[in-house]
């Protein structure tokens, strides 16, 4: 996972509420058992002229020449709702999106962002709309997303500050593998489980013995 500190990049507005993960990456675009090869399928239903085609729809915002190479997506409420497929974030990240600014995110999608080094920035809707209007007015405008300072700037001007919980922030900045971090607590986990076995034995005994003989419908 690429560590994230400060990013200066252009933005693109996609101001619709409730954009779901199937819109971000349609199921039919998830062809392999891999986390890569998904960028082409990103927003496929909107991006191409018809289902299955690869002819870009010139009307779709991401296809406009002035948006090429943008890294900050500005969007509506409840972004990433629907299916929990992590492919949505893999596709966004592979396409080059490093941060998403929205009034709110679906919780699973948000966790997937953190796990993949994409910064979910949630701010008031008015602020999101202001940002969208700015990039709408001048697509070449460069925004600086400063994660350590939790602010968005244009040049030296702070456009807004934002909240992010410290552990998500650390995970994004360090770019460390979360499994390795947790496995440092392996002994503590095993000790906890040992005690838990005494307290809740049924959690452990039930799966150890498969009582298929007394199966009921």
């Amino acid at each position: 996972m690429t560590p994230f500190t400060v990013l200066t990049a252009r933005a693109a507005p996609l101001m619709r509420d409730n954009i779901d993960t199937d819109t971000i990456i349609p199921s039919r675009e998830m062809r392999t058992v891999a986390k890569t090869g998904l960028a082409d399928g990103l927003f496929a239903g909107w991006r191409y002229t018809s289902i299955g085609s690869r002819t870009p729809d010139p009307e779709f915002i991401l296809n406009r020449p002035e948006r090429r190479g943008f890294s900050i997506l500005v969007t509506g409420d409840n972004f990433g709702c629907g299916s929990s497929r992590e492919h949505a974030v893999w596709a966004l990240a592979e396409y080059g999106i490093r941060a998403i600014v929205a009034p709110s995110f679906n919780p699973i999608f948000r966790a997937n962002c953190i796990a993949n080094g994409v910064v979910p920035v949630s701010v008031e809707r008015d602020t999101v709309e202001r940002l969208a209007a700015m990039t709408e007015a001048d697509p070449s405008l460069l925004f600086t997303l400063d994660l350590p300072r939790q602010e968005m700037r244009v040049g030296d001007d702070v456009i807004f500050g934002f909240e992010i919980d410290p552990e998500s922030k650390d995970a994004l900045i360090s770019g460390l593998d979360p499994i390795a971090r947790t496995l440092r607590l392996r002994d503590q986990i095993l000790a906890f489980v040992k005690t838990d076995r005494q307290l809740r034995p049924w959690i452990y005994s039930a799966t150890a013995t498969d009582h298929s003989a007394r199966e009921t419908a």
Binding site: E86, I108, A111, N112, I179, T182, V193
Partner: peptide, 23 residues
Amino acid sequence: AWGIGSTEAEHALATSTLSLRRP
């Protein structure tokens, strides 16, 4: 019972735990 992403599933499989804030 809650839905997670594939990376979190990998974490849960490897460590029998997940790190999260109380909702």
